[in-house]
Design a protein around this nucleic acid. Structure first.
Lengths: 119, 119
DNA sequence: TCAATACCTGCGCAGGTATGCAGCTATGCA
DNA sequence: TGCATAGCTGCATACCTGCGCAGGTATTGA
């Protein structure tokens, strides 16, 4: 198999066959980017705290999240907007209160793994 | 239980008891930060590609990783330095070749989950 | 000793991102 | 209608981060 793109086919390799395996292992670039973006959403302590709270406690209002995490309301709101735009959380409006919950299964698994580690 | 710190105990809550649950759910701040940092390491497509290659293919040399990912050597080297400093990968020197491998079990689980999703 | 290879490091630039502040909209209640 | 509350948005600032370039170290082989 010649999986090495033409623009770098002339470079010297150490373990030639392994390079092809590695390219195969990495897989589709789009898939990698999707997961990198997912990890990026969890890479901020504030956002991760919000998600952990939502994951383990269930639907929570914005201002309650703000009190629980020590953030101010706009900061929570913006974090949730980001997560909502990515399809990770969804909000249910009840009067003037919006309760958010986690709706992404992949993220749920990641959070579960995070909780399993002595959390 | 009064888990709400004094500096924000006077703020009005929507679901008072849930705030305490949420604080408990978030857990230790140090733990959250540790995981956020972990996720941060996987949040870059290039780094994630490197880790996927190492995870699925086994020990690989720096220049082979560079060819497989399309990065240039210094970029790979710097990414590996970051991962090495975080204890995620380790390098075995053989003459002038250094082969890296994944050594962090938590990260391995995350990568496995990433691979499991149609990768 | 000289040259080539494999890898590492420091530096500077460009681009992205979090954060605080002020102000806005919408709902509930009297 | 008037007012307080819940949440959202825009903007400016400071910060972080990835990336390429140039140059340095260590090992191999002639």
């Amino acid at each position: 198999m010649h999986l090495v793109p033409a623009d770098r086919a002339d470079r010297r390799t150490i373990d030639g066959h392994r390079v092809c395996e590695a390219i195969e292992a990495i897989g589709d670039a789009e898939h990698v980017r999707t997961w990198a973006d997912r990890f990026s959403l969890l890479a901020d302590p504030k956002r991760l705290a919000l998600l952990l709270a939502l994951h383990r406690t269930g639907p929570l209002a914005v201002s309650d999240l703000a009190i629980a995490t020590g953030m101010n309301d706009p900061a929570v709101s913006q974090a949730l907007r980001l997560l909502r735009a990515a399809g990770v959380v969804a909000g249910d409006k009840e009067g003037r209160v919006v309760r958010y919950r986690v709706v992404d299964d992949d993220v749920r698994l990641l959070l579960k793994q995070c909780v399993a580690d002595g959390g």
